[in-house]
Design a binder for these strands. Sequence first.
DNA 1: TCTGGGGTCCTAGGACCC
DNA 2: TCTGGGGTCCTAGGACCC
Length: 426
Amino acid sequence: MIALVDCNNFYVSCERVFNPALEGRPVGVLSNNDGCIVARSNELKALGVEMGTAMHLLPPFIRRQAILLSSNYALYGDMSRRVTEALTEFSPDVEIYSIDESFVGFQGFDPTTLEAYGQHLRETVRQWTGIPVSVGFAPTRVLAKLANHAAKKHPGYRDKGVCKLETDSPATQILLKQLPVTGLWGIARRTGERLRLMGIETAWQLREADPKQIRRHFSVVQERIVWELRGQPSIQLDDMSQPKQQIMVSRSFGRLTNSPQDLREALRQHATRAGEKLRKQGSVTSTVMVFVHTNSFRTDLPQYRNRTVVSLERPSDDSRDLINAAVQGLRQLWRKGYAYHKVGVMLLDLSPKANRQLTLTETSQTEAEARRSERLMDTVDRLNRELGRGTVQLGLSRAGNAWALRSEHRTPRYTTRWDELVKVRM
DNA sequence: TCTGGGGTCCTAGGACCC
DNA sequence: TCTGGGGTCCTAGGACCC
């Protein structure tokens, strides 16, 4: 058996841990730039607010009664780490799947005791971190997702917050027959539409479908879902401890801008952040992709989106190389007459730094330069880690720039910034 | 005025090689 | 008039996830 442990309304729950006055109230957490709603308390869901609702489309009567907070990722990231730590007390086999979900392996545990064990896990996580979680047990990941969903929503399970499903048990069959196929993990709107044309509308109908036929019509991804529904584990989770294969950093601007300087500064910032991520996982990159685009919602304005790829002379993890490449790419992309909304950088072709190939022409002088680069980046990373992100920057940016994020309702970073904690208490 | 950010996997199709 | 076939690698784009 495997369990999916999922934090309930995670970002909202994090905020509530530090501000109990938010309990029982309709609370939402906003995306970057306070643009749309990315997390909702049950009370806000009950008001009919959908995930991803744009702030400016939120009906006034909801805006009046809801408490809407800017997102505080430093806080959520740190709370997530604490939840994971608590989970490792219950099984050595914890796979972090996202900031608020982990699969926990319980192979070899006595199946009859699992539900009680799940209860104990919930209580412990709640007590240690303040975060409420739901637990779904099943033989496969797709079914564990379903079990978790039932543990959150289904009348028969939600009071306990734990649900265990066996392959093809009556309870499992009932849930699958009630569930639209798009409620399954891995089946979204597009695939759902095509399945409907084949007469498959419920999760149970997909379970009954011929896996080979599903593969012919779709791909191996959907075929695996059928096998998983039948209780046969077929989905491997990529090992999250493996280094990423690509690294992306991008942000929408706080307001539209057509100033090349704004774009350049934002991009320098993104390239710097990408370099930090790259070094943290011990990789180097040889290809930097840059993209820009205008705001596609502003149909009244001329639209432009483009991207370009810049190859580095040799693989690098030095932020200065990344910045140079990114700025060079931007020079090719920038066009007059557009109101830009977003720039970003992607690092592709990542490889482990340890394998770095020395080129034939590499001399001892460039070797010395590489060592200097390494020492400089180490120092920059250490200072930023210890004193807070942005303490040391490569090049200065102006205050009040157009690309600065709007974040008007952010709560203090309670668990990672002493200065902000003190401010609260005074 | 205002609509997130970051990632993965898979397939199709073109280029290229022998 | 006739104009191979099969393998591999790469890229772009679709779909999905949280």
